[in-house]
């Protein structure tokens, strides 16, 4: 579904990614590991077309040079930063994000999803008072309401309690069932050893399995 062909990125003359290749098919999950500063986040942001790159090609559904807006609609990057407006409530934040993605999910469904992620009591509170774990849950709630094809999750397990990790695993299974694919960056060794998915390494500016 997504094919990354020899992407290179230099950062002020310094090479960060050197001809990186990657293929992700339907319903696939791949775990990406790498040292701090090895360029994992850069790589994810390039795929999500949030960051520019120097050379290389991105194929989405075998089409090269998709419009940036098409890529942004179908490839969803879930970053480390919260990415929500502090003064808006979870409901308002999600409604804003969904409306800009032209998705017509009903308010009831949003509230239902928020309840599922244990945020039911905070639907009308402002996001500014949320703890790290709650923000993380809110991000998953948002991600599971969107209709993306490839999800790029950047350290999603940070700050989650056991219950949160369980919710996260449920999400992943649901997404895979839905023919969505996931590229997951994590440092959590427990998670990696217990999971049945492939692990890739970003080392020396290249990806290897």
């Amino acid at each position: 579904m997504l094919h990354i062909d020899s992407i290179s990125k230099t950062f002020d003359g310094k090479v960060i990614l050197d001809n990186v290749n990657l293929k992700i098919g339907n319903s696939e999950l791949k775990i990406l590991r790498g040292k701090n500063g090895s360029g994992k986040t850069t790589f994810l942001k390039i795929i999500a077309s949030l960051m520019s790159f120097n050379s290389g090609r991105i194929f989405f559904n075998d089409i090269e040079n998709c419009k940036k807006t098409t890529l942004r609609k179908n490839i969803f990057y879930l970053g480390d930063a919260p990415g929500f407006y502090k003064f808006l409530s979870p409901l308002q934040n999600i409604e804003l994000g969904l409306s800009l993605r032209k998705s017509d999910i009903s308010k009831e469904k949003i509230i239902l999803t928020l309840n599922k992620f244990d945020l039911g009591n905070y639907i009308n509170k402002s996001v500014g008072i949320f703890s790290k774990g709650m923000l993380q849950r809110l991000k998953f709630a948002y991600a599971s309401l969107l209709d993306w094809k490839v999800g790029l999750l950047d350290e999603p397990l940070n700050g989650l309690d056991d219950e949160g990790v369980e919710l996260f695993n449920q999400c992943i299974e649901l997404w895979i069932e839905n023919k969505q694919s996931v590229l997951l960056v994590t440092h959590n060794t427990d998670y990696i050893t217990n999971s049945k998915y492939d692990t890739l390494y970003l080392k020396n500016k290249k990806i290897s399995s």
Binding site: R72, A81, L100, R101
Partner: peptide
């Protein structure tokens, strides 16, 4: 400035808009 708090602007930057 408020767009930078919580990196809130990411919410609209990740959306497929002009």
């Amino acid at each position: 400035a408020y767009e930078k708090e919580f990196n809130a602007i990411d919410l609209i930057l990740s959306a497929p808009i002009d």
